[in-house]
Design a protein around this nucleic acid. Sequence first.
RNA 1: GCCGGGGUGGCGGAACAGGUAGACGCAACGGACUUAAAAUCCGUUGGGCAAUAUGCCCGUGCGGGUUCGAGUCCCGCCCUCGGUACCA
Length: 901
Amino acid sequence: MSEYPFKEIEARWQQYWFSNSTFRTPVELDLSRPKYFVLDMFPYPSGIGLHVGHPLGYIATDIVARYKRMKGFNVLHPMGFDAFGLPAEQFAVEHGVHPRITTERNIANMLRQLKAIGLSYDWDRSLATTDESYYKWTQWIFVQLYHSYYDEETNRARPISELIKHLEATDELFNAGSEEEKEHVLATYRLAYIAEVPVNWCPALGTVLANEEVTNEGRSERGNFPVYKRGLRQWMLRITAYANRLVKDLEDVDWPESVKIMQRNWVGRSEGAHVDFQVVDHDEVVRVFTTRPDTLFGATYMVLAPEHPLVDKLTASEREDSVADYRLKIAARSERERTADVRIKTGVFTGGFVTNPATREDIPVWIADYVLMGYGTGAIMAVPGQDERDWEFAEAFDLQIIRTVRPPDSFDGTAYAGDGPAINSGFLDGLRIQEAKSRMIEWLEENKLGEGTVTYRLRDWLFSRQRYWGEPFPVVHGADGSVRTVPEKDLPVTLPPMEDFRPETTEDPDAPPRPPLSRAPESWRTVEIDGVTYERELNTMPQWAGSCWYYLRFIDNHNDERFVDPELEKYWMSGNGVDLYIGGVEHAVLHLLYARFWHKVLFDLGHVSTKEPFGKLFNQGYIQAFAYRDARGIAVEATEVVDQHGKPATEVQDQPGRLFFHNGNSVEQEYGKMGKSLKNAVSPDEINERYGCDTLRLYEMYLGPLDASKPWNTRDIVGVNRFLRRVWRNFIGEFDDALLVSDREASKELTAALHRTIDRVTNDMERMSFNTAIAALIEFTALLVHEDSIPRSIAEPFILLLAPLAPHMAEELWSRIGHSDSLAYENWPVADSEILKSDEIKIAVQVNGKVRANIHIPADADKATVLAIAKADLSVIRHLSEKEIVREIYVPGRIVNLVVR
RNA sequence: GCCGGGGUGGCGGAACAGGUAGACGCAACGGACUUAAAAUCCGUUGGGCAAUAUGCCCGUGCGGGUUCGAGUCCCGCCCUCGGUACCA
């Protein structure tokens, strides 16, 4: 008896695809075919291996890739590993093994797991960001960034050599400067530059972190260690130059609206004005940023961030003590304390005054922690009449409040931020906000008191890390402090082999950073270029560097001459870049913003042909699962939990009225993202072993819509497994292994059902609705159960429809019905529109919107005919009796509604 | 607080353009086959009233509205998940 031998089948076809290079991207491209670049967000090769949540997106892209091949596209579908960075290194640190070794081991294990799912990647294009042949080009891109600047005139990056030429020709001051001074000027332009900046320093990780890597609670996203603010000299990337384009170009990509909004918020563009306030009795000016220049007449006090550089100058001698006290108190407050009680305003008066340029009144200057040094100019003009925070502060410290916008009569709140006519505002009186804003900006500009401007929340990207496991910077430092990039011919700068790669961690937030590379051998640290001795840069690049451009390398990953061949880049990125990019929403701002930034720089410099890298983005949902915690709140192994009747929780976890126990102790049921911490992970290996990977693939897709988060329930897997076994039995004799496909002609009904199925599945494939595509195939399979044999005209298209979803079974059946080649490039079946049309259709008849009957009508019947048939129906007649028909509605092919009174 | 997604049977979900709510699957129940079990096949399965049927009423988080007709559109709430958080 043959019972669907999935192990044998799956091993055979995976071997076949490998030895025949079935999924190798065509090298000789048939340019008459359209291209399709379908990409997954590549994973970190973690040491724990995959759980069933990880491959969800990979299965989806694989189905799309297989479908597109059958639709005649040239498909590029690669996979690689994001192997540098903190997770890989922390794992290595914790296990005391060199990251090179753990990384290789982890990659090997993940490769095994991925291949066991039958994913149709072109493995010849696999890469890891840790490959020297890869990070050579990551370093090369960094060199491009270093040697470029942002030209505000033409709104694009240009080689810094052009700027130097320009400055030499026009700027006497520049020419007069020393080399060092010149370099200082250039550093304010370069897209990659070194600056002393306030950074997030994490002593426990021994490194600085990007804002994006720090949680709201002021801790590291990796490891949850405390993070402190301190000033350090670091490499920065001038992403802020691209702030505007990063927002604007979102209009041109097909991305989930929520991700676009997150990016817009992150960039945080706001339009407003700079206003200069003269300091009373000092030759200083304080510049503020405001989005409401129209309210300048209502600015009754000013607030500086406690760290603002002018605080010392402004502070009156008798206020020095309280100002110093306050600043100390703020510095000691953790980020958490600072954000916990947002509604309670604190601050102190400096004793200083500035002049409101509109009213000519002198207004007091305060410092308060609700003004942040990192945004705008670190100083605000407070207009309590129109700003809730300023109102609260004014109330708390008894400061003057003037309304400069008339609230509606019904308004009984405090600050009024809505629209209305300006009042108490001199030349602005009567104007609405929009008009008043532009009028005030004109006035400021005429009087040289400020100007209209745009500010962004986005900060420049802190690009160095004090870790070992990252790309070394292709940069060397001269004894005189000069910086130069390593010549292209000497790239890559490889990581020196080091026994001790551990970061120097400490609990002292003020200890100087000591990057591991400072302990590298002298022979690595010192390098001679053109006869001059230099010291190598000892920091490494952050995690995100490698993932900023990997999609480009996939296009041409064996190229030793260039990071990507321009012709191949043009072909595969044509249209709008990557045609489909699937990954988790957790990368909505970090990876996707950084990658877009690099891509735009490469675009400006003429190295790539599109302004955006990812034309279509899709976020797959998470796989969630039930989890159980004991009385101490500690998660227990979900597979060991039983209910009050002793049944395994995995069988009954979705049933009402259950109590759960672990080793006899009561446990609480919970529901969350699958993973190690909740002890509810399921490995794809166990599912493969028990049901095979076609079942795994089908189940993951059948769970629900791809973008929804949904619960894993191992018990339910039998459903799709039964479907596959049923398909097998329909084709292969249960007792004799005989082929049950014949050349007899198919019935009209079965043919019609097939074409309806082709139509449904095709439609579902196009909109990535794989759960409904599978449902359609299950329904069709049920029709085949009672056929003695399956006509070939039915069998072939059916197998092809199944192929993207359950490729191993499809290939096996395809071969058993007599084909010697893989079906991977067979034409996708086309539904015959003639067959889809039926002569007779069934529609519902409603009386007053309630369905009272179903009638059969000729497909081409006109309204009068249909209504006649409907009114002749006994059930309809019953509901029409003694009523008057006041309206008759017929929606062709859909419904009849008779409105009666 | 603000922004965004989502609330449909015991469970996962379907309904794509406002047109028969609950496709398909799980679980549950009944039957066939079997010495028995597994597997398989057939059937029932939103709630209620009925037991004559082509039957009636209710039902998509809650309350209103638009429409011949609302899970779907509009207004006001509640809950939930994610993002963000004194951004001037």
